[in-house]
Design a protein around this nucleic acid. Structure first.
Lengths: 191, 191, 191, 191
DNA sequence: AATGAATGAGGATTCATTCAT
DNA sequence: GATGAATGAATCCTCATTCAT
């Protein structure tokens, strides 16, 4: 029973299914058929809406970034003052949802994809730039000129801890957050 | 004219070809045929020596870790005292060879692979444990009990910087090294 | 707002779009969707009007024959006497419109189609019979009993020249016409 | 039981199967799978040897031209003098094998293919040029300067009659040959 | 009248893997 | 030791066609 206005519903279902499927297999070796089946439709329809497997992946990545961005804004909403805001940004990065198996898988594959796919590379660049600019914005009042440099250090530390917790250590957002905070405090001391 | 004692030569050629091929395509979507052709032999022979594609990949990863380990030992060889040794470990991580396109690709794909392949996961665990234990060994004399905690921070920072330099920022081993050193110095101050 | 009396308009649009599309791709590998899009409607509507892809093709071929027939009648309209009428028939075959890229493509595909599609075969038979009977009608007064035989020769020459000019030589209706005329004159000499 | 030196055998089998398959369906809508099955192998092997469907088709066309060329040379072998040689060339064009259903189908599809495929167009050009040059060679002694023009007429007549006999009239190589001869004689009379 | 939604049935192509030689 | 031969099982993608609205 075909309905009207299905497009957004189908697209969303496909994006969710893509992330779930990547999470389950742990790789990008995911077939459009499986994604479509999980989303409750034929693979032909998936192609109809997205045009290609590539585009389905890109949409899924964009979705993950959107969710992440939403979390950052959410955490920032209640934070008062630069130090609290920095804390909020860090907290958003280690929010429990980020350690869902499927989200981890999507991020890692995102990294790999960025090597060969221009669209993915661009998206990843957007994420990096955004994190950096968020950090710089609140570091400036605290460390002045050293804001850029400090932001890069913190950003790298966040990424590194994320990967370690995601892949090897047990995921522990609180511990990760504490560790970044500690370094941040040290770096702020100087001034 | 089949030769005797070709096995190690063939295996090495295949491993090198695998890494080169992964580097070129930027993903694990690499065919055994292409690897074999690059290594100057038939794909059947590649299977003969390694048994399966999985195993070829694993061997390639092991090779990368071996090379990395060799570098660490090399840098450590001339270092005197804990602080100098820590420096050596850090320097080894950002050694120019690690930023070769193909090595980056291999590492990232290594991460992805670790999610679904037990062998790869184990190998990655070995790398992490070794880096940690190396760091701890030389941090203990400097920070005592806080050695473990500090090692994890430094290790994460190394990984995070590596990924950022590998993927987004221009690869700059010297800058990365300086950044880690700076944080390390801060963390050592306390004592 | 669906309109009434759209049927003939839609059908004509589809037929024109079909010919254009065949001309553009140079083959019968033309999708109903593309045809429909070119004709400004959905593929579902195309099916509604024609029932199947086959039938759309047949209609397009019929259209081409109709146009050709119209040209023949048009040229014949002003011709006086058998010799002039023969000339008119020949001229109609090499009329510029016949060398439009899309018409050439349609004709050739028509030939191919006739091998496997009964409807197309019948249509092609009609064309051949009509051309022959037109020629015979005006040859009879000139060559009597040899009219049939002569007609076949002229008809074949027309087809052969058409294909050659359409495919390999540059399309040159005037030259083709002259060549046929020349042969015709020779064949008429005898009497 | 795989053997060595299968390549030429497989290629030939595939070419024959392609022609047969085109003949059976009467169109180029022939699947590689069907061709391969008819040739007694998997479709994967067909791709292994030819690389693509396109290339299989081209090889089949080339084969048809080769066979045709062989016939021409064969007929020319016993012909003495220009007139007899012209006769031989004409006879080769209407040789019974050319009216095999599958050969007809291949030729017609060849024509269609030439519109969109550069390789096919080139091959067709070769055929046309060869026929023309063969004719010119033997017409020169008979009609001098008019050799080119006469050759084109005869060539077109051959093609036209071939198509008509192949598609509509019953295939009758003898009648076709007689008809061309007749026109040829007429055209030679002048001199 | 008109269409977006939906799909089943392929179709070309790729590839890891096996096997006889 | 080494390889060409061979394939089954996918995989992405396309398309004619149907249907509810």
């Amino acid at each position: 029973m075909p309905k009207v206005g299905m497009e957004p519903i189908r697209r969303e279902a496909l994006i969710k299914a893509t992330i779930a499927e990547i999470g389950e297999t742990g790789s990008l070796d995911v077939t459009v058929s499986k994604i479509a089946k999980r989303a409750g439709m034929s693979s032909a329809l998936a192609h109809h809406y997205f045009g290609s497997k590539e585009r389905i992946f890109l949409a899924a990545m964009r979705h993950i970034l959107t969710v992440y961005g939403r979390w950052v804004r959410c955490e920032l909403g209640t934070a008062k003052g630069p130090r609290a805001r920095l804390d909020a940004i860090i907290r958003a990065s280690f929010e429990a949802g980020n350690f869902e198996h499927e989200v981890i898988a999507a991020w890692l594959n995102f990294y790999v994809h960025a090597q060969s796919d221009a669209g993915a590379a661009r998206l990843l660049g957007v994420y990096h730039a955004r994190l950096r600019s968020n950090l710089v914005h609140d570091l400036r009042p605290l460390v002045g000129d050293r804001a850029g440099e400090t932001a890069e250090t913190i950003a790298a530390l966040i990424d590194g801890l994320y990967i370690r917790h995601a892949l090897v250590a047990p995921p522990d957002g609180v511990a990760a957050h504490a560790r970044v905070t500690r370094v941040l405090d040290k770096l702020l001391e100087d001034t």
